[in-house]
Design a protein around this nucleic acid. Structure first.
Lengths: 248, 248
DNA sequence: CAAACAAAAGTGGTCAGACCATCATTCCAG
DNA sequence: CTGGAATGATGGTCTGACCACTTTTGTTTG
């Protein structure tokens, strides 16, 4: 009868395993080139330990049954931290936007109205994303943006062009420094990509690249206001090209 | 060799069960009084069938093992469609913002910087939410907003005040008509609520209620511009009261 | 009779071991 | 050297049992 004040209920076994696994996952992903990097110095050809041991192995390591370990892994997969492939093992990834993407697909099943609502949100978030990027973008970000722009101009296929296009927006959101903003925009990008190739035409690659260049130019010169405006115009043009109605 | 064009892989059993359950969830209320209805015809007082049969029952109904059924249920729980309670059964709910909330908690573990980024996003989304609400709010929405305002003014405790406050914002987002906007704002509200009571002080209830009233007044008069501005000022004041830095 | 306690039933949580489906590798025949 | 057939490894599914928690029920007790 010692502990009565804290109504802390013991977390379920699955949750405990989840926490342990999550703790083992995070420290491996972040790009922290700390001088340590002491782990796994024995494997000369597995750059990122981006794979999880087999279920049976992990289960016995953690001292739980395979059922529990499986449920924990499934949970982490739903959260976008793992990718399970039958026969191939479980990879460690970092796609936290996946849960949001799934929820939005479920929330607005109709692709057309989903696209319309998507652009309403993009028009709110991305101009600010561009503005913040103009203020905060690092040299690395500028370099990546340039590479993305080049990839868009030289895209060999429509699919590649779409990928490069959305990548530009992702890098921009990353440069904004707001991680929540990044996550939401990444999710919107996922949904956009899923909508393409389903009868939805986008604007020409060349025109899109031009607008990206305008945005990038503004960011290079730290002109946050111009970047914001350019992004807004870009999105308005993209929405119009999709045949979607303007905002009220 | 018939189907070769669509590389549609057969979905796993768990996914199939997920789909079946999801289909059974949405139209949970709708009139599907199939002539069968063999189960529990003896309970005359269970108004909403907001509960799922037991795992063993469901598993045999769907013709799958309990393991598969469990994994499917867990998946739906993570998506915010179910709530599992040991010994009490599984309830049907609809909280699609839960996955996003979880992802954001994981993405920005530090409550302080999370709150800062949260307000950056709120300042982008909620003024537009208020603007759209001014254009689209139905009489029912106005009524709910009024009730929420009254609840805020007469809140007996700080906790109740916070709940009423966030509820106002939720109703507003609902009135905006953009479901994606609603989902994101609901998630932000969840995180806000979780942050309160952890050393974070908010502005006084009376002042908050006054600002809500200003917003509601603008919405009643369909003055979208005024509603947008009032919401922006409300959020700026709330952020300042929290001691957070202004946007760059 | 009513309230309090104890037993029973129902629920999700965990475990163990087995077998199936899919993928990667290895190895042998050509 | 190439191709495909065995082999191994991995995740997917099944079964049945037992544990932990909650609700209901039934009895006991005041």
């Amino acid at each position: 009868m010692r502990d009565l004040a804290p109504i802390a209920k013991a977390p379920s076994l699955v949750d405990q395993v989840c926490s342990q696994l999550a703790a083992r996952l995070h420290p491996s992903v972040p790009p922290s080139p700390s001088p340590h990097s002491p782990h796994t110095p024995h494997s000369p050809q597995s750059p990122p330990p981006s794979r999880l041991p087999s279920e049976r192995t992990l289960a016995s390591q953690l001292g739980v049954s395979r059922s529990v370990l499986r449920e924990a892994i499934k949970k982490l997969e739903l959260q976008g931290l793992l990718e399970i492939h039958q026969g191939r093992g479980t990879k460690i990834v970092s796609q936290l936007q996946k849960p949001l993407t799934a929820a939005l697909s479920l929330l607005v099943p109709d692709p057309s109205s989903r696209l319309a609502q998507l652009f309403e949100i993009r028009l709110l978030l991305e101009p600010e994303s561009a503005r913040l990027a103009a203020l905060r973008a690092s040299p690395t970000h500028l370099q990546k943006l340039d590479a993305s722009l080049h990839a868009l101009r030289t895209a060999p296929s429509l699919e590649a062009a779409i990928h490069a296009d959305l990548d530009f927006h992702r890098i921009l959101a990353d440069a904004s420094g707001n991680k929540i903003l990044l996550l939401i925009i990444e999710s919107l990008a996922d949904l956009l990509a899923a909508s393409h190739g389903k009868g939805f035409q986008s604007m020409s690659t060349a025109r899109s690249a031009d607008m990206h260049e305008t945005i990038l130019h503004a960011i290079r010169h730290r002109d946050d206001s111009a970047a914001e405006t350019a992004m807004q115009e870009h999105l308005l043009a993209a929405r119009a090209a999709l045949g979607l109605p303007p905002s009220p």
